[in-house]
Amino acid sequence: MINHVIKTWKHHASLQLATLVVLIAGFTVITGVLTVSNNLYRILTLWGESMQMSVYLSETATIENTSAIEKFLGDSGKVDKVRLVTKDEALNQFRDQMASYAPDILKDKDLLRFIPASFQFGLNKNISIQDQLKVMQEITASVSGMAGVEEVSYGQDWVKSYGAIVNTLAWMGAAFVLVILLSAAFVMSNSIHSSIEQRREEIEVLELIGATRAHIRLPYIFEGALLGGTSSVLALGFSYGLFSATKNYLSGQIAFLQLAGHIEFIQPGFILMVVGFAIGIGALASYLCVRRINDGWAASQSLIEGH
């Protein structure tokens, strides 16, 4: 098999090189798309984690009401860091924030009555960003009906548009990756196809002297897998270089956005997926192509039939 590959490279070096370059380009694009969408997702998740929900308690809320609400939130498994902000704490916070702007307001005794106690919490990290809005709405719906609850707030409008953006991006990303994957598969099978088509004479002669299908096909399948694997690994290396350069740029030129610290290369799982996909598609494309030629009657179907 190794001999087959060496021979192929010796005699069809430029064709193989062209195929390899096309494949590397294809996988670089795939890796690039994966990296960008992965990081967009990460950044959006970071934003999502900083989203806070508040359940404001009514004036009449009893101790039992309060602990029932706390228990409900804790048992739901969907929220994190539940914290009770009492009236006094809320007032103090408010005072600290307002002191410099409107010192007069703080003298108003009635004000105390208008600042309610509340539960403050964030969403559990395990909740994917597509689900955040839904989960917030669910929590709002069930908590609103509980005794002692005045109002539930999560910055409804902002979260809605944030959720819409995330969902749109997720769909677009998935569609884009799918298109890229399909076209990569298409480009790969095309270049492997032409690379094998150029060697059809060898397949014809091997058939004529009685080589079995396995004997004829295996070296080509191995070669396709190797080509796919090699090009994806090279593409990953290449993409990593591009990624590092981009990251450097982000931390140097536009450091104020503080993005550099948060972006990262695609996860090891994705890397394995890309390489596995490449090997699989290389082997499959080779197999389909060599099978089409190697039907037992290859020589009689040759276009360049000699006499």
Partner: peptide, 10 residues
């Protein structure tokens, strides 16, 4: 059959 062709050709 395609399977027999190689054996015949040998």
């Amino acid at each position: 059959t395609p399977k027999d062709i190689p054996h015949f050709r040998r």
